[in-house]
Design a protein around this nucleic acid. Structure first.
Length: 413
DNA sequence: AGTCCACAGGAAGGGCAGGCGA
DNA sequence: TCGCCTGCCCTTCCTGTGGACT
């Protein structure tokens, strides 16, 4: 889009003379589509969580004994992306904290997202985060892990209490560092005099228990709860509930909500996706100076969300990974390419740009990472007498490819 | 049935930056 | 200051593997 048209699409009037009028005056004089955009954030916790009564009751009945001073069973919560796992557990914790405050029960709840980069994505960082939650500050690095364990257990055992530790996206951490830390957290109950710890693990990978040691599997999986995807009708209810608070009157019709719900329901019943769609469609409508959200805004939003996520991912890749991706993009043939071909193209790019050439082993790992990010697709195939290799192809659409080139060409050409 | 290719991918460890405690 | 610890990125060495070829 040209600079000028971007400006007009943000609602700036063509006739505005910057010298005479404040350029933002026009923007402020228009009535906004949004009443409160916060209601459309997936992190927002509404008073009432729709279509998850059963799951909330299940979780609360398991952790309720903590109010009487008993250690609740450990729980494993499974469910796909956007099925409401996090929001439900946060709601339950919120209510538990409220009632434990009233009853003066000694319950402490700790919520940690294990996927948060540089926050809790290693054993050390997880422990540092746990210590932080109980009021002990430790350096980002430098101490032996067992010292952190000791500090944590000493601190929490100072008074009689029950600690509920919620580890969201626990599969990410276990894949990275193994399951030893879970074993330590669970096992320690027998050594603490005053405090009892319960662990609630949340994951969207149903096969993830395969990575676990049998001891941990049996003790952590004392209770298991599965969150099923929302269907289109349920998503519609959720969107209706949020839209009522998020948008001003007469800015959105039910057909728009239905459309967003239908799109998200097709994509594994993801409520987060549905909310994003609605929010971005609203933003586009507002920029276009439209008084209400139209179907075309939802269509544009759908494309924009996909484009934005992948482009942002590519932009934030380390330079070596960008070079590898550029080598894959540079592949002139229509066919899939092999690791060897990518590696030889990658070497040329490095030499041209004074970039250190990594070994093929390392490049192979970085190719795997690009696969995990969903930018490329790789498949290990055997060519019999001619060995085994990986077939690599791009997963991105031509639109995204053009934008990716705009990022990579200035870096490597 | 055995051989062989060209890798994939696991394991171990090096080097670096950064922090702690003696 | 030094030894020891961490995470992170990387290399080196090695074993494993599927299927075409002999």
């Amino acid at each position: 889009m040209e600079k000028q048209s971007i400006l007009y699409s943000y609602g700036f009037d063509k006739e505005t003379k910057t010298s005479k009028h404040n350029i933002f005056k026009n923007y402020l004089s228009r009535k906004s589509i949004f009443k409160n955009k916060e209601f459309l954030l997936s992190s927002f916790i509404p008073d009432e969580i729709l279509h998850r009564d059963k799951e909330i009751m299940e979780i609360s009945s398991i952790i309720a004994p903590s109010l009487r001073g008993y250690k609740p069973n450990n729980i494993f919560i499974y469910g796909g992306v956007g099925t409401g796992k996090t929001i439900c557990i946060k709601k339950v914790l919120e209510q538990l904290n409220e009632i434990s405050l009233q009853n003066k029960s000694n319950i402490k709840t700790i919520y940690i997202n294990c996927k948060m980069k540089r926050v809790a994505d290693t054993e050390y960082r997880l422990l540092a985060q746990l210590l932080n939650e109980v009021g002990v500050l430790v350096p980002d690095t430098g101490l032996p892990t067992d010292v952190l364990y000791k500090k944590f257990f000493n601190e929490i055992d100072k008074k009689k209490q029950i600690i509920l530790i919620v580890l969201d996206e626990i599969d990410a951490l276990i894949r990275k560092v193994g399951d030893e830390f879970l074993y330590n957290l669970i096992r320690i109950n027998s050594e603490l005099n005053n405090t009892k710890i319960s662990v609630i693990g949340i994951t969207n990978d149903l096969t993830f228990t395969n990575y676990l040691d049998a001891r941990i599997k049996s003790s952590l999986g004392e209770e298991e709860i599965i969150f099923h995807p929302y269907n289109a009708m349920q998503l519609r209810d959720i969107l209706k509930q949020r839209a009522k608070e998020a948008f001003n009157k007469n800015t959105i019709k039910i057909n728009i909500i239905n459309k967003c719900a239908a799109i998200a329901a097709q994509e594994h019943g993801d409520a987060r996706r549905a909310l994003d769609l609605l929010r971005v469609a609203g933003e586009i409508a507002e920029r276009e100076n439209s008084s209400e959200i139209l179907e075309k805004h939802v269509n544009i939003a759908e494309e924009k969300i996909e484009l934005d996520t992948i482009i942002e991912t590519i932009r934030s890749l380390p330079k070596q990974s960008q070079a590898i991706l550029y080598a894959i993009i540079n592949n002139k043939s229509e066919n899939k390419i092999s690791t060897k071909e990518v590696f030889s193209e990658y070497k040329k790019i490095c030499l041209k740009n004074n970039l250190r050439v990594l070994t093929q082993r390392r490049v192979s790992d970085l190719i795997n990472e690009l696969d995990i990010l969903g930018i490329i697709d790789t498949k290990v195939i055997s060519k019999g007498r001619y060995g085994r290799t990986r077939e690599i192809s791009l997963l991105i659409t031509n639109d995204i490819l053009d934008n990716a080139k705009k990022i990579l060409i200035p870096i490597f050409e």
